[in-house]
Amino acid sequence: MSRGIKQITSEAIVIFKDNIDTDILIPKNYLKTTKRTGFEKALFAPWRYDSQGKPIADFPLNMPENQGKKILIAGENFGCGSSREHAAWALQDFGIDIVIAGSYSPIFYMNYINNLKLPVVLGRTEREALIEADLPITVDLEAKTVSAGNLEYTFEIERDYRNKLIKGLDNIEEILIYEDLIEAYEAEYAK
């Protein structure tokens, strides 16, 4: 099974706020674990649950019609704050394979890509149009396009990252491309 992303079609969950930081994506009391999965309940916890811990019915992640959607549309500077990779893991566990935002914190951006998920950068007007249209969105990584109905936008992503995501190469596989060289090194210096 390839874990690469070529094309994904899904309706979007919309949380159209700027500066969604990693404490909102996953607060620190959810980090007390030795696992890297099982964070789906933690995603957006501060906004998702009331002070008694009950789900807030009209928060997007809690709405029945939003379950199973793979795309999240957000504001600017998504994922700012601490470097915790748990933020990427929480999105992944909830099933969000693509975030469409205006910009990202560099550390979150890398963490998300390192987990083979796609951060798309689109301008505000484009995102507003997508939200307005409220149609299934198709993100085509090979063509670098986001389309919905008769809207179609292109986005930019570094060639390296695109390649990695399309092929579904994880960091380890990217190193193991050089397995022969590593073995040769070990034979000589690190027996």
Binding site: N171, I172, I175, L176, Y178, I182, E186, A190
Partner: peptide
């Protein structure tokens, strides 16, 4: 994890 798997 990368170092675990690849020593690199």
């Amino acid at each position: 994890e990368n170092v675990f798997a690849t020593q690199c």
